[in-house]
């Protein structure tokens, strides 16, 4: 293998996924380098979520190959993908509203007061506080119930939890959706912090091209189940991405309008 592939944490070759008559992915080949933030954009139905679900082990591709750290793997389950260091932060966040921030952070990874089977709440509280502070995540207190937090704070905690669980590859499903500018900047700052640390590699689905270009190293545009564009963020623009998506939309719209024009 060449030198460049050793730094690739993910490589896919010709991924195909069909749902009955619908072909969601039609030969997706992409790669993610160590420490990189890759923005995945594309119109609704372009196949972004299907791709993420395959990489997280939730769906299996019909064709194609997946390499993690240069080794070919079959991501047969979510827990197997997780064992390889792949964590996904879904839009539904998987946080429990009724539990405190630190209990959410440590859910399923609780520390105990050995040898007693009791939770070591003091330690979990302290570790959660220290970690969130180091990540620059600003919340009133780690004792707060998650239900009381804003959307941006909840998203930050979900991401921080994934990273804290020693994820090396982070898949973010629309982390900036339905968020105001202030809330969105919380997440942007967190992703920037992670990028500077360089420990995790990130694929992030997003709709807002301006934010994608601001935070990502590289952009992939997914269209009709294929990668239609792969450029470093510095070499493309909101205009180019918009144009690519709109052009296709215009073609479709013109075709539909023809009978009207003939009237």
């Amino acid at each position: 293998m060449s030198e460049s592939t050793t730094t690739e944490v993910i490589r896919t070759e010709g991924l195909v996924k069909r749902f009955g008559a619908v072909t969601a992915l039609n030969g997706v080949s992409l790669y993610l380098r160590q420490g990189e933030v890759l923005g995945l954009v594309g119109d609704n139905g372009a196949g972004k979520s299907t791709l993420i679900k395959i990489l997280t082990g939730f769906l299996q591709p019909d064709e194609g190959r997946i390499f993690i750290d240069g080794r070919e793997v079959r991501l047969r389950s979510v827990s197997y993908a997780r064992s390889l260091g792949i964590e996904t932060v879904y839009q539904d966040l998987a946080l429990v509203n009724e539990l405190s921030v630190y209990h959410n952070m440590f859910l399923k990874r609780e520390t105990l007061l050995n040898p007693l089977p009791l939770l070591n709440n003091w330690r979990m509280r302290r570790l959660a506080r220290e970690y969130l502070e180091s990540m620059g995540v600003n919340i009133p207190s780690v004792d707060t119930e998650v239900a009381q937090l804003s959307g941006g704070q909840r998203q930050s905690i979900a991401i921080a939890r994934a990273v804290y669980s020693r994820a090396r590859i982070l898949l973010l499903d629309e982390p900036l959706a339905a968020m105001g500018a202030k809330e969105g900047s919380l997440i942007m700052n967190l992703i920037r912090t992670l990028k500077n640390e360089g420990q995790v590699s990130i694929i992030m689905i997003a709709h807002n091209y301006a934010q994608v270009l601001e935070i990502c190293d590289r952009v992939n545009l997914l269209q009709h189940g294929r990668i239609a564009l792969d450029k470093p963020a510095g070499q493309t623009s909101v205009e180019e991405l918009t144009e690519l998506v709109m052009r296709e939309y215009r073609v479709g719209a013109n075709q539909r309008q023809q009978p009207l024009a003939g009237r």
Partner: peptide, 10 residues
């Protein structure tokens, strides 16, 4: 509190 979320976490 969150059946799906809890099972996603494991």
């Amino acid at each position: 509190g969150n059946l799906l979320g809890a099972s996603e976490v494991g």
